[in-house]
Design a protein around this nucleic acid. Sequence first.
DNA 1: CTCCTGTCCTGCCGGC
DNA 2: TGCCGGCAGGACAGGA
Length: 281
Amino acid sequence: MPELPEVEIVKRALEPAMVGRRVKRLVFNRADLRFPLPEGLPLALQGQRIERLLRRGKYILGFAENGAGFVLHLGMSGAVRIEPPAGTSLHEKHDHVEFHMDEGPRVVLNDPRRFGFLDAVGREDCQDYPALAAMGPEPLGNDFNAEILAVAIKGRKTPIKSALLDQRIVAGLGNIYVCEALYRAAIDPRRRAGDLNAKECTALCMSIRSVLRDAIEAGGSSLKDYKHTDGQLGYFQHHFAVYDRVGQGCGACECDIVETGGVQRIVQAGRSTFFCPEKQG
DNA sequence: CTCCTGTCCTGCCGGC
DNA sequence: TGCCGGCAGGACAGGA
């Protein structure tokens, strides 16, 4: 589910709930999600004040004053719920992890498919955490630009669609925002990544940034199950030009009334790709 | 190296 | 109404 914009929104909501507060108790309601839950984490965090949360790609990291910390990934179906301190602490199906904060809300991780994971990582060695160490630049940061992107995809024979899903090339993109970014840049998702010229890399870079910014501003995209930590829905899904819009017009050309028949769906590397053959052909 | 496939798991939707 | 197959936002291992 959650790609960079959704994770960013979750992280922003978690800050007032967690930062500056102590972890009264960290509770695991089962032994594993995608991977075994870190047995030592509850003790390492108990009584510790959370100093900082940060997002890297689709990961949320949190560090306590003693240097202990965690890395959280929501996978496809993971969601975070923040329950007010005085509220009746409702338990829902698939509530796997609960952060009970001192004099504060309860932060609940719910993940039906359990593709997400929570791991322990110290503040000092998070740079060495494998998934983070190999991760490409933050698309909204200063380290991402057309030249960097061009170097990263140089010589790659894989379709540009698949390349952009590779977190080592650029961090945080998933299937939705890759489709939308390629659409905005008017690039055919089937093109070989290494074949893009400098101008196209520039357009793609700008498109990636704009679609992510727009999505964050719109509160992310709520499809099957993504919700904000308070249960509210994002509304960027209403702004999709191509994602899950087979047969419909993309909105920018007359693709729906010419013979091409609007947005098309193809499968690349086992994933759905949506594109407008008129604009991106 | 690079690229692709299969796999983890549950829920939901459409077809029969 | 109910059952079944297919599909879903991600990431990793393993094999070609």
